[in-house]
Amino acid sequence: MNPTRKRRLTIVLLIVAAAAVAVGLIVFALQQNMNYLFTPSQVQTGQANGYKTFRLGGMVKAGSIQRSNDSLKVTFTVVDASGSMPVEYNGILPDLFRDNQSVIATGHMDNARFMATEVLAKHDETYMPKELKDAMAKAHEGKHVNEEAGQDKPQ
């Protein structure tokens, strides 16, 4: 085979391989993303039963984080609108991990507890300086109190 044709053949094969990888990725991603994660309610209704390992997504319940003194073990509760799930994890947590943060934990069920091998923090799409955030929090607080005071509570 002359060198020009050989070169072309190589490039075409590379393109075909790249296209195959791309299509494979799309299929893979779509399948995985039908179920990228399960919420606690979904797990509780058995939707994750077919998966040995899966991702659990929800919010860290405020006050539920308990860290062990002598190891990296931590337990916390992940909640969504209508469900909750206790999680146990051994390892380093991302900087953003804290109360009320959205998290995505990868792992498997062990009885009623989720044993996580990886815990990722998800952040929302808002960006603002700390001063603005504090001011907004204060304003929200004040509004909440006033709303309550304005309601006619039956005695």
């Binding site: 799309i26 991603a29 990228y36 991302p94 998800k122």
Partner: peptide
């Protein structure tokens, strides 16, 4: 920020 270099979610993929 997230704790991982990569994940196969729909946006990244």
């Amino acid at each position: 920020m997230w704790g991982t270099w990569w994940t196969w979610d729909a946006r990244l993929t």
